[in-house]
Amino acid sequence: MLAVHFAPSALFVAYAWALGRAGAFSGRARWHDALPGSLVSAVATLLAISACAALLGLLLHPFQVRAVRVLEGYWDRWGPTSRLAEVLAEHQRRRWAVLFDATTREAKDAADPSGKSLREQIREQDAVSRLERDRHLAVRRLSALPPGNVLLPTALGNALRAGELRAGERYGLATLASWPRILPQVSGRLAAALSSARDSLDTAVNLCHAFLGCFLLGVVALYDEPGRWWLLAVFAVAAALAYKGAVTAAQAYTGLMYVVYDLHRFDLAKALGHKLPDAEDEWGLFRRISDGLR
């Protein structure tokens, strides 16, 4: 609660309080008025901001999944954003196609060195090496994305969707249907790692929302003070960094989803009352389980 909800809420509440105390919403801000005049006033201000931040965090807690989905790019249900979602999704599909094309390029052997100088031979060898490195990099990046036909508009959405569509499917299990059932079977240390990765993701998402909220408040309050616009740039950069952190945390969380199915898929089968299959029957069993869960 402290990291995921209270800290982002306190950041937003403190900034809104400072803007209000400085009179930024009704004219040019008087920033010296935002500072407490005494120790008692400072303590009272700190307690008030903490109480409001705690209340805001508790009110927003049930909407955490929606907060993540907003940054994932599930915007097609909203008329004003559906067109933007399609434009960004098309951009993601073009990037995916570029990576896919890069994975199909095979590094060719250097041409016959006879009759060429040593410098030319070295240049050709370097070109072959660079092509091979680029191909391996494209393979790694492509493996962290979902199939091209189900790409979402944002990097965060695609990082999470890759796990949602592949973690269990490798064994015949539908990930979205089986995840709530396999999660209680997870061992203690892996459960702690999953919880930590999820908290990191949620914290980064909430910080991104808080910085975006501060940015919008600043636009409303400081539009007539060009000398303070640098503050808007700070919040915009901070929001971008928080979003990048959310993508990184999502990739770590997705990696742990793969580990859960690697280690605990048979625990799921046992918990659902099925006999453990042999290697030949494993795929068929998990397909039947997935059909039943759907």
Score class of each variant (00 low, 15 high):
Ala10Thr: 01
Arg21Pro: 05
Leu99Ile: 00
Trp75Pro: 05
Gly245Ile: 11
Gly168Trp: 01
Arg198Val: 07
Ser143Ile: 02
Leu60Ile: 06
Leu156Asp: 07
Thr203His: 05
Gly273Asp: 01
Arg288Ala: 10
Leu142Tyr: 04
Val43Ser: 14
Val4Gly: 05
Glu106Gln: 12
Val98Gln: 08
Asp224Met: 11
Arg288Trp: 09
His264Glu: 08
Arg181Cys: 02
Gly245Cys: 15
Arg189Cys: 14
Ala7Leu: 06
Leu268Phe: 11
Leu142Asn: 00
Val220Thr: 10
Arg135Trp: 09
Ala210Gly: 15
Ala177Met: 07
Thr103Pro: 05
Asp126Pro: 01
Gly168Arg: 08
Ala239Lys: 09
Ala3Val: 06
Ala53Cys: 10
Ser114Asn: 10
Val65Trp: 14
Pro277Ile: 10
Gln64Tyr: 12
Leu19Ile: 00
Arg83Lys: 04
Lys275Glu: 15
Ala34Lys: 05
Glu169Tyr: 03
Trp31Arg: 05
Gly20His: 14
Tyr15Met: 08
Val247Glu: 13
Gly163Thr: 06
Glu90Phe: 12
Asp224Asn: 09
Thr203Trp: 05
Ser38Met: 00
Val4Tyr: 04
Gly255Cys: 09
Ser290Asp: 09
Arg93Met: 13
Glu225Trp: 05
Leu11Lys: 00
Gly273Val: 11
Leu212Trp: 05
Thr254Phe: 08
Trp75Ile: 00
Leu59Trp: 09
Val259Lys: 07
Ala107Pro: 01
Gly163Leu: 04
Lys270Phe: 15
Trp96Val: 01
Leu241Val: 10
Arg93Ile: 05
Tyr253Gly: 12
Asp291Cys: 12
Leu160His: 10
Pro146Ala: 01
Ala191Val: 03
Ala24Arg: 06
Phe215Cys: 11
Glu86Met: 12
Leu207Cys: 08
Pro147Leu: 04
Ser117Phe: 12
Ala269Lys: 01
Arg294Tyr: 03
Glu132Val: 00
Ala107Gln: 00
Gln121His: 08
Leu39Asn: 11
Arg141Asn: 09
Val65Thr: 03
Ala174Arg: 13
Arg161Cys: 03
Leu222Trp: 02
Gly79Phe: 15
Ala221Phe: 01
Ser38Thr: 06
Leu152Thr: 00
Ser290Tyr: 04
Tyr15Arg: 12
Trp230Thr: 08
Gly284Pro: 04
Leu165Tyr: 01
Cys52Tyr: 06
Val220Lys: 10
Gly213Ala: 01
Leu60Gln: 13
Arg287Pro: 03
Gly292Ala: 14
Ala110Thr: 10
Glu164Trp: 14
